[in-house]
Nucleic acid binder design. Structure first.
Lengths: 210, 210
DNA sequence: TCACCGCTGTGAGAAGCTCTTACATATGTA
DNA sequence: TACATATGTAAGAGCTTCTCACAGCGGTGA
């Protein structure tokens, strides 16, 4: 590293020619920009300035700006999946609470990193959503499916599992977005989020299966 | 007006000094950019070029770029609400179908104008979400509430109405986003969207009311 | 040990964008 | 008809992304 915090603008300078871990440090800086000022507030030039390198340096580590965002998204999705796993495993295997737990973790992630969360779902849309990201998305979904399958005491392969899991996902996804969008009503209900989650799980999973 | 389509880049020139209806034409051009290339693909300078005015002209009609987007969002929300009304009124008053109808209209809007739809929910977030936009949002939600109240045969004022309506909204909102994000599973289920909607309405509205 | 190759950073600059300012031209109203 | 106001233009400041030629460092093989 060998960095020294410098002037009042939060910039740094180095003693060594090479930075040491620019890629990681850059990602962190951009993530901070993203959460602080939204997607339009992200500037690689500014991030480079902050970590004390020239404006061309980032391009030694990323093809372009969108590649930086993609890396942040990939990272976020990994943390999201891990969180969902933990949220599920905090409750008894096969319980309704375990299902709701994955949803709660999803919502918590959105609340904690709203801009990254939003980016996850506006970037994978873009064009072909690099297969890596697609796979990560599927991994998240399968966490929910497993919990649902266990609760319904049926194999994950049955279509009804994916269908119910999808309905739950949509509900949780919708609430997450409405909440971080600061929609008035969503704010009110975020106080009783867990009740809502359990209601939804019951409503969707205790329906007569087709 | 008095425009003449010009060279191969889709630009136009005018015979009169004044454009005639720049505000409207500009909004249309930007909406096209938005749907074609996403929010980052919007350039006022490019839009001005396309409609045949100088790059400074848009600033006679809008404070800045975000004001243009805000106008597009306001417009979109009006159309959304109108669509939801129609979707609801296409079915018998007080029926479960009427409830699902508002949801279907919501989803159709998202499918038809995905970028505008997305913008509606990322712009109102920004800072204080100009009261005008907040009001439009509330108007949309009340369309759902009315349908739910009629189905449950209770006055809209009862908290349970808003709660169930919110759950439905979250579900529909989530599916809309997942669908336009081209999530694999969402695509599969969009074929049987109506079934999903009715399932959700039943699941949420036929729960024992607290 | 040392020469060299490739990785990573620099500095300058092209092209494009937003938004401002000073100026020009229509339009409608007194 | 004359002028105030609305709406356009041209030019430019300051920012951005991304490229390119060049420079310094670090690990590898002779």
């Amino acid at each position: 590293m060998s960095e020294v915090s410098d002037n009042e603008t939060g910039e740094t300078h180095r003693r060594t020619y090479h930075h040491g871990d620019l890629r990681t440090v850059l990602l962190d800086a951009v993530r901070v920009q993203l959460e602080a000022h939204g997607p339009d507030g992200v500037s690689l030039a500014q991030a480079a300035r902050e970590v004390g390198v020239s404006s061309g340096a980032p391009y030694r580590h990323f093809k372009d700006k969108s590649a930086v965002l993609e890396a942040i998204v990939a990272d976020g999705m990994d943390r999201l999946k891990e969180g969902m796993r933990e949220g599920r495993d905090a409750f008894a295997k096969g319980s309704l609470e375990a299902v709701a737990g994955t949803g709660q973790a999803y919502i918590d992630f959105a609340r904690h990193e709203p801009s990254v969360f939003r980016l996850v779902f506006s970037l994978t849309e873009g064009h072909q959503a690099s297969d890596a990201l697609k796979a990560k998305g599927a991994a998240c979904f399968s966490v929910v499916m497993e919990a649902v399958a266990l609760y319904l005491k049926r194999p994950v392969e049955e279509p009804i599992i994916s269908r119910r899991a999808y309905m739950l996902w949509a509900f949780v996804h919708g609430h997450s977005f409405l909440m971080i969008d600061k929609k008035q009503i969503a704010q009110e209900y975020s106080a009783i989020e867990w009740d809502l989650l359990m209601d939804a799980a019951r409503g969707f999973l205790d329906l007569t299966p087709t």
